[in-house]
């Protein structure tokens, strides 16, 4: 039991295991208030449903938005919402980091023999966030059933891959945002601009936005790789900023790079916290 020096891989496995243990505790805690859980879970589903209703209302007046039909927009909506919902479910709680720094409860996590990120991610794990995932999947199902696409094995395989890589990209944004809160504890809302804001952005076709904005979310904050870029391939469309077709293969690599960068940012943030204590 004593004196083991865990190597990096062991540490990662340790983190996942600790995450699972803590999540289990939160799920059981939630079940202490079943009615409240049911209401907030439904609320979460309804909250996300409302913004799709708004899109449906738009389409009650037009045939296409920015040249994209309703099933195509629903495809964008379904993929980003499911991906974002998964990231939010798994580690959406990291946006409470600033609060933990302010009230000093982060210190409790620092004296346990498990990675802090795993503990912060599992903190207040809320199963009710499944509401968003479910709603995203419902819209995605509707899109897949109605969209006019020549389905090839490649395109079929691309859809689940999009959701997974998209989830990883949003996860990277969550972690990077939390790392930023080590330096600005009150700035939790900035993160919302990239998480919730990114999700809203990606629900609409890229063709309606200014090209510089599209370039920004492609090359700076690479959220375009959640669905805009791979959707070019699945739906057989041209990129509005002239990206070559092979870019549709990039999401797994972009996601891995984003996660690595977010991990470095997290480590830098934690190191800064431990040297300043605030």
């Amino acid at each position: 039991m004593r004196g083991r020096v865990p190597r990096r891989g062991v540490r990662a496995a340790d983190g996942v295991r600790a995450y699972g243990l803590i999540v289990g505790m939160w799920v059981r805690s939630t079940m202490a208030y079943r009615l409240s859980f049911a209401m907030t879970a439904f609320g979460n589903l309804a909250a996300t449903a409302f913004d799709f209703v708004a899109i449906l209302l738009m389409f009650s007046h037009v045939e296409a938005l920015g040249g994209w039909s309703l099933p195509e927009v629903a495809f964008l909506y379904g993929t980003t919402s499911t991906a974002f919902g998964l990231a939010d479910l798994v580690l959406g709680s990291v946006d409470r980091l600033g609060r933990r720094v302010r009230d000093g409860t982060l210190d409790v996590l620092l004296v346990r023999p498990v990675p802090v990120l795993a503990q912060v991610a599992a903190d207040r794990f809320a199963l009710r966030r499944l509401g968003r995932v479910v709603q995203g999947l419902l819209v995605l199902g509707y899109a897949l059933a109605t969209v006019e696409v020549q389905w090839t094995p490649g395109r079929v395989a691309a859809v689940p891959l999009m959701v997974l890589c998209g989830g990883a990209l949003f996860a990277a944004v969550f972690v990077a945002g939390a790392a930023f809160q080590f330096f600005a504890q009150d700035a939790a809302e900035v993160q919302n601009a990239f998480t919730y804001g990114g999700n809203t952005l990606l629900q609409y076709p890229p063709s309606i936005f200014a090209k510089d904005l599209v370039r920004g979310v492609t090359f700076v904050v690479p959220l375009a790789f959640v669905n805009w870029v791979p959707a070019m391939y699945v739906l057989g469309r041209q990129s509005p900023i002239g990206l070559p077709a092979w870019c549709a293969l990039l999401p797994p690599f972009v996601a891995a790079a984003a996660l690595a960068a977010a991990g470095l940012a997290w480590r830098a943030g934690l190191r800064a916290y431990r040297s300043t204590g605030s």
Binding site: H61, V62, A64, E189, N192, A193, G197, T200, Y204
Partner: peptide
């Protein structure tokens, strides 16, 4: 700081929704 962060987020959402409405009203 929280206020400044909120202003930033409000502005980002403003841009996103503005483009969506422009697409809608250009057609109708």
């Amino acid at each position: 700081v929280a206020t400044a962060a909120g202003v930033f987020t409000n502005t980002v959402f403003g841009f996103i929704m503005a483009y969506a409405y422009i697409a809608l009203w250009e057609q109708r």
